[in-house]
Design a binder for these strands. Sequence first.
RNA 1: GCUCUCGUAGCUCAAAUGGAUAGAGCAACAGACUUCUAAUCUGUAGGUUAUAGGUUCGAGUCCUAUCGAGAGCGCCA
Length: 545
Amino acid sequence: MIAGIKDIESEISNILNEFEIQDSVEIRYSNIENTDIQCNNLVRYSNAPNINEIKEKLEKSLLANPFIENIEIAENGFINLNFSNEYLKKFSKNHNERIISPKKESMLFDYGGPNIGKDLHVGHIRTLNIGRSLYNIFKLAGHDVISDIHLGDWGMPIGLILAYIEKESIDINSLSYIDLEIIYPKASELSASSKDFYKEAQEISKKLNSKNEEYLSKWKIIYNLAIPNIKNLLQSLNYEFDLWRGESDVVEEVKTVVADAQEKNLVVEDDGALVSTEKEDPPILITKSDGSYLYLTTDLGTVVHREKNQKCDKYIYVVDSRQRNHFEQVFKTVKHFNLSSSSFIHVGFGTVNGPDKKPFKTRDGNVYKLSKLHEDIKEKLKKYNSNEKVLNVLTNTVLTFSDLLPNRNQNYEFDLEKFTDINGKTGVYIQYAQVRAQKLLSSKVEIIDTNIDNEYNLDERKLLLLLSKFDYFYNQSLNNYQPHHLAEYLYSLCQTFNSFYANNKIFSNDTPDEIKLKRIEIVDNFYNLTGLIFSCLGIKLVDSM
RNA sequence: GCUCUCGUAGCUCAAAUGGAUAGAGCAACAGACUUCUAAUCUGUAGGUUAUAGGUUCGAGUCCUAUCGAGAGCGCCA
């Protein structure tokens, strides 16, 4: 995973082989001060009788490598190495050329998942940010990626809305989007207290499934009311999708999935409901006792629909961890019903918590809307810039960077005050650092001497070394579906750059031309890589602050 | 009750899937501005990685138990 060290690894491996030590040699970055990389394979053999001979041979051979400038083998067998300037110069740039995957795959990213009638709220930012980031990361590696927002535009929620409209005799044609937002929570609440109302909603939902024209046209009205609003909001937040499919697109597939399973005896009846024949505890429920469909059924239909329309090698679902069991059931059933031979991955994540350490509620109607959060962040950022365009990018940066920084497996606390500060691990800080770099690169200077100085001071070397580590963090994010590795790395890059910036003046009169050239190249490398990581995370650059 | 996820500095979070002395950011304290924007930078202090065992050259990471937190447990999505 470390760029450009394969030769060094095989060199060590060869030498160890000569002494009849057969290990798969691995070099890793070192935490030890003044050591760049280390190899631990020799540790287990530190008591071997010919250890001194091995050490001698290793030292001699490794020092001849142009990428290595210093070698030290500790008493206990750790092989500590330092990179040469040649290595640092070469691997601190052109990163995007090195991360192309040798095996190209097609992948569908299912994320976002907004529901009709329910406004996007704070709880949606993780699926949006993580989904978009993974999409960008895999795209950068050369994979064929496609994103699908997977709208919640069918089933019981729609039944509830339509039942409520009917019950309250609301004129559906004069309905506005704002009315819709009010209706859903009320309908949801009513369904919990009134069994009759719940049954009515269920009936409507069933009729929709059998293409009842009256309800279908009402559904369409609601759909057309909701979708443009969702699109506008997401666009302003810089989220884009290749596909805007929803549950309503797979109604036919859901029916055929169930029918086929029945025909192949993959389901059995239980209290009127259909249950998968797979031995599971609890059993996997395919249809309700009244014959209507469930969340799981819809997801199975979606798989069939995708297999038919945009078959992929991998399907990646970015949905919160509470639905882990659900996806286990979906994926098992996909295999059991033989719906697809592709691989299915659930990328889960924890909740976004408020200051009270509790997640923002989604169904009590009293939610923190995403649009409101955007406004609140923007308000805080006004002290940094008054330009509306810059302010919007900055706001989206905070909304994304703060969210991608923690490991997705854990819950985290959203602290508005903290996240909008320029001091600290924040979106504002990283934007400020790259703006500084931009400014330096745009400065027009007369440089006469064209020699580049190839010796590096401590600040320069530290930055170059960190720049060369991109491949590692990129692969961590890619292999584990965890963007936070890149987010953390980006911050440390910016921090190291700011330190370099403060201690190494480029355009001062007592800086010789060859040093100016060298430093401008370093700044250029920093700026290019920063831009690359920004795009991986789904963040746009501001050009001033 | 069963099953997952997790417990790291006062607070918010990292840590290569087993490597040497566990790192950042806030907050606290002490410094650096006639500056390529100090909107920044540099120090100091802060830890028995929930607890107790185990596995081995080596454990925050793996195994067992206990305590504590959050989540999920057929007819919502």
